[in-house]
Every structure is written in structure tokens, then in C-alpha cells.
């Protein structure tokens, strides 16, 4: 019943036939996926369906047991760890549900972190970081540490951090999972707006329909397979 995903032609990031098991637990069993530049794709599905694993595979954090992940001309699943790290550092941005900010660094330093990992000078990095914080309406928190700001603020700081390197793909894993509706909506609005501004693709893992409503397209992961919903219902 699994349909092949939207045609990978012109796609920025495409995965085919992904398999991944953690010990006896099968997380992915032949999942396909693709995303185009500037597209926001929601990955939905019940808990434990493998949607986070799909995201981890797509982002090159986890190497799938089988299948390929193509980013442009490169096969992520074949790259060595160092190159995948470099790719994540330069081309991808990440937002997670919680606990992603380094607790000892100030918000500004947290946002500047990816740039500094790329070798940008501290002053320059923090300048750009400040710009992103302003864009995410959280510049007030720049001097504070993650423990001293609210959950909504810290998610916006996290989004700012994901955006700071102007990535081509932003991976967001339940970015609003720990937030109330209003804060969640705000984060989603800012995230999708910023992504559209920069033509970044967004892979958005969520189980909330209202969050998924910010996407252009949705993929449902069920039993380790990804089902592209664009074609459903037209038959």
C-alpha cells in the first residue's frame, strides 16, 4: 500500500528504502522520503512509528541499515562520520523538542555556536547570532542562560540557532512539543517564515495536526514506512 514518494526529480533531499533497527526493535522498514527546496514537509505518525528515526537518517545523524539518503549528488549513508558532521554543521539546521541549548552558554553564544564550529570569528558569529535572535523576537534573552528563560523563548533561541548558518534543510523534531498552543504557534510561524525567506526546506516531525498545518505536504510514518499523503484520496 505504500506509495512511492513524490517524484525525487528536483528534490533536495531524498531517501529510498530506508531500514533501521535498534536491537530487536525495527524503527524503519523500507521508508521513502523526499523534500524539495523551500518545501515544508510534515512527518506525522503515532509514537514509536519511527518518525524521529527517519529524521535522524535523513539528517545523517544515524546511518541506516539499508537504503540511501541522497542530498544533492551525495549519498549521505555512504559518507564518513566527519563529512556527515561537516554537512550537518554547514547545510543543515536542527530544532529539537527541548534541552538542546548548552546550559552554560548564554543564548547569544548558543546561537553563535554553529557559526563558530564553522570557524567564524567570535565577534562576527555573535553579530549574526544577534541578528537571528532579533528575527526570532528573542533578542532580550541574548545575555541570559537557557535556564533563565521560558520554554517558548528557549525554543525560539533554538530556531535562531538552527537558522544562523542559513542552512538548506532545517530538521525540526517536535519543535513545539514542550510548548503551549500560543507559544507553539509563534515558534512555527517564525520558523516557517524564516525558512521561506531563505528557501530552506523544512522536515518537521510532529504529532500535532495544528503544527503540521504549517507544512506544505505531509508524510505519515506507520509501522516503519513513510506514506506520502499528497496522492491519497485522489484515486
Amino acid at each position: 500500500m505504500t506509495r512511492s514518494p513524490a517524484a525525487p526529480s528536483g528534490s533536495l533531499l531524498a531517501a529510498a528504502g530506508l531500514h533501521k533497527a535498534y536491537g530487536p526493535t525495527t524503527a524503519l522498514a523500507g521508508a521513502d522520503f523526499s523534500v524539495h527546496p523551500g518545501e515544508v514537509v510534515a512527518v506525522m505518525g503515532p509514537s514509536g512509528s519511527g518518525k524521529s528515526t527517519l529524521l535522524h537518517c535523513l539528517a545523517g545523524i544515524v546511518r541506516p541499515d539499508a537504503g540511501t539518503v541522497r542530498y544533492g549528488a551525495r549519498d549521505l549513508s555512504a559518507l564518513p562520520d566527519a563529512e556527515r558532521s561537516a554537512l550537518r554543521r554547514t547545510e543543515f539546521g536542527f530544532v529539537f523538542q527541548f534541552g538542546q541549548l548548552v546550559p552554560e552558554l548564554t543564548c547569544l553564544e548558543n546561537v553563535a555556536l554553529p557559526l563558530r564550529l564553522n570557524g567564524v570569528k567570535r565577534r562576527e558569529a555573535e553579530l549574526q547570532a544577534l541578528h537571528r535572535l532579533e528575527q526570532l523576537e528573542v533578542a532580550d534573552a541574548r545575555g541570559k542562560r537557557p535556564g533563565e528563560i521560558s520554554g517558548g523563548q528557549s525554543q525560539r533561541v533554538a530556531v535562531a540557532r538552527a537558522l544562523v548558518t542559513t542552512p538548506r534543510v532545517i530538521f525540526a523534531d517536535e519543535p513545539t512539543g514542550a510548548l503551549d498552543s500560543l507559544n507553539g504557534e509563534r515558534v512555527m510561524r517564525l520558523l516557517t517564515e524564516a525558512a521561506r525567506d531563505t528557501r530552506a526546506a523544512v522536515v518537521l516531525v510532529t504529532h500535532e495536526a495544528r503544527v503540521a498545518a504549517y507544512s506544505d505536504r505531509e508524510v505519515v510514518v506507520r509501522d516503519g514506512r513513510a506514506r506520502d499523503m499528497a496522492g491519497v484520496g485522489l484515486s
Binding site: 504549517y214 507544512s215 505519515v220 506514506r227 499523503m229 491519497v232 484520496g233
Partner: peptide
Amino acid sequence: ADSLLDAQRTEHLRLMRELTRRKV
């Protein structure tokens, strides 16, 4: 019944997207 439900959720989500766009 599965594809019935899928079709319905796609339809729901389509409307939700529209509403979200209007809202934003």
C-alpha cells in the same frame, strides 16, 4: 477503511493548512 481514513485526514489537513495560511 484505512485509505478512507487517510483520505479524510488529508482533506482535514488541507483545510487546516488553508486556515493556517489565512490565520498567519
